[in-house]
Computed example of a mutant assay.
Amino acid sequence: MSRVTDMLALPRVRPDVALLGALVVITCIGLVMVGSASVAVADRLTGEPMYFFYRQAIYALIGLVTAFVVLHVPLRFWQANTFTLLGGGLILLVVVLIPGIGSAVNGAQRWIDFGPVSMQVSEPARLCLILYVAGYASRRQVELATSWGGLFRPMFFMVLASFLLLLEPDFGAAAILVTVAGMILFLAGARLSYLLVLGAAAGGAVVLLVLSSPYRLARLVSFADPWAHPYASGFQLTQSLIAIGRGQIGGVGLGNSVQKLLYLPETHTDFLFAIYAEEFGLIGSLLLIVLFSIVVWRGFVIGRRAIEAEQLFAGFVAYGMSAWLALQAFVNIAVNMGMLPTKGLTLPLMSYGGSSLVIMCLLCALLLRVDLETREPIRRQPS
């Protein structure tokens, strides 16, 4: 028992205060904004204006407890079980597609219901797959740098996972998974020319997917000029842009958004940032972007320190987790501002949703664990 306790004990080091502080502030802002952005839709659907806020608070508590447990698990445990994680991630993506098990919402079969709660499988699956790639990259650097085979093996599983994600469909999750995996493999020594060839092939496949699907083509057309069809395909984006525009410099104030009053759909999920920008304006939006930038900056610093200390798995995990959070935040904000087509990706640590919030808490716990394991121990002062 004492051996297990010693193994699970946290290293005696000072955590990265900037990273931890930014994560806490972002999560608190997200909780407040879910409460503010969802009052109208919650009242219409349930009769309880704070319904989604209460549920998000419960998800946050579950996420914190789970993150606390993960924070105490040494990275060598995850490194030793990367193949198990790979299998688990792929199984989740297959199971959700089985009729009667997977649940469809708005035409997308991405959830598995567990009574009163449901799990969006792409969230834990991506975490498992990125940890697998980090483990592979830490073991196979020579093969990655010298042969196609070294790059083909992990990318085969990423392409397979992406194919399963596209069947749901969840194009945004697939794009982020492949991008993060490619970045980790590049850092591990994979040749840039090989990655560019794979990237070109992926780009060609995306073009074919868009051209072969009227649904995706309509999304792209509406994104390019949403004002051409403001009450049809461009409705969601035009309402989002109106919300952001109303915020101006200082915002209209917390709770004073007009667009959340059933004008803008998905106010507490995919388009939470638009309501935040309306209520807190340009100043608040820039502050939020700075907070996300601090998390990514500190994450990359932690990753570099781990690699310099020859803790390759820890370094690749830190880079992968940071890149995932950065890309998802960028895509969500860009979609809200009309810079990218709608992707259905949440704003990390902020948008309503139990699966997203809990997995993001685990992501942050892994990043903090890398930080703790790669820092110098605190030296005791002589008494």
Rank of each mutant, 00 (worst) to 15 (best):
Val197Gln: 03
Thr238Val: 15
Arg219Ser: 03
Leu165Gly: 01
Ile244Glu: 03
Gln239Lys: 13
Leu129Asp: 03
Ser138Met: 04
Ile294Arg: 00
Val290Tyr: 03
Gln141Asn: 03
Ile112Asp: 11
Arg304Trp: 10
Ser257Lys: 01
Leu264Ser: 04
Leu368Asn: 08
Val370Ile: 02
Gln259Ala: 09
Val41His: 09
Tyr319Ile: 00
Val206Asn: 05
Leu372Ser: 04
Leu286Gln: 04
Phe77Ser: 07
Ala145Met: 05
Leu166Pro: 01
Ser285Gln: 07
Leu93Cys: 09
Leu372Gln: 06
Asp371Leu: 01
Ser162Lys: 08
Leu31Gln: 11
Asn332His: 07
Phe53Met: 14
Gly255Leu: 11
Phe300Leu: 13
Leu164Gln: 10
Val105Ser: 12
Ile112Arg: 12
Leu363Thr: 09
Thr84Cys: 07
Ala134Glu: 07
Met50Glu: 12
Gln311Tyr: 06
Val331Gly: 07
Tyr59Trp: 15
Ser222Val: 03
Phe235Ala: 12
Glu373His: 02
Ile307Trp: 08
Phe300Gly: 04
Val210Trp: 09
Ile294Leu: 06
Arg379Met: 11
Leu131Thr: 03
Pro226His: 14
Met50Cys: 00
Gly204Tyr: 06
Ile275Thr: 04
Phe235Lys: 08
Gly338Leu: 09
Arg139Phe: 05
Gln248His: 13
Leu211Gly: 00
Gly281Pro: 04
Leu61Phe: 14
Ala37Leu: 05
Gly189Ala: 09
Asn256Tyr: 13
Pro230Val: 10
Gln120Asp: 09
Leu325Gly: 00
Ser355His: 07
Ile378Ala: 09
Trp78Asp: 07
Ser285Cys: 03
Leu262Phe: 10
Asp6Phe: 03
Leu312Thr: 03
Asp225Ala: 14
Asp270Val: 03
Phe68Gln: 12
Pro116Cys: 10
Gly234Ile: 10
Tyr136Arg: 03
Gly315Asn: 05
Gly354Arg: 04
Glu373Gly: 02
Leu209Cys: 11
Arg14Thr: 08
Glu143His: 02
Leu187Ala: 09
Phe152Pro: 00
Ser322Met: 01
Gly172Ser: 03
Ile98Cys: 02
Leu347Ser: 06
Glu373Thr: 02
Ala60Asp: 08
Leu262Lys: 03
Met321Asn: 01
Leu198Thr: 09
Arg110Lys: 14
Thr66Pro: 00
Ser322Lys: 01
Leu217Arg: 11
Val94Cys: 15
Leu166Gln: 12
Pro169Asp: 13
Gly253Pro: 06
Leu327Cys: 09
Ile62Trp: 13
Leu368Ile: 15
Leu195Phe: 05
Phe83Val: 10
Leu23His: 01
Leu286Gly: 09
Phe157Met: 06
Val301Cys: 10
Pro99Ser: 12
Ala314Ile: 00
Leu64Tyr: 05
Ala67Gly: 05
Leu10Ile: 02
Pro74Ile: 15
Gln328Glu: 15
Thr82Met: 11
Val178Met: 14
Phe330Gly: 07
Tyr319Leu: 00
Asn332Gln: 05
Val34Cys: 10
Gly149Thr: 07
Val159Glu: 08
Thr5Arg: 14
Gly204Thr: 06
Arg126Gln: 14
Val295Trp: 02
Ala202Ser: 11
Gly30Glu: 08
Cys361Tyr: 15
Thr146His: 13
Leu90Thr: 02
Ser147His: 06
Arg55Gln: 15
Leu340Thr: 05
Leu10Cys: 00
Val70Gly: 07
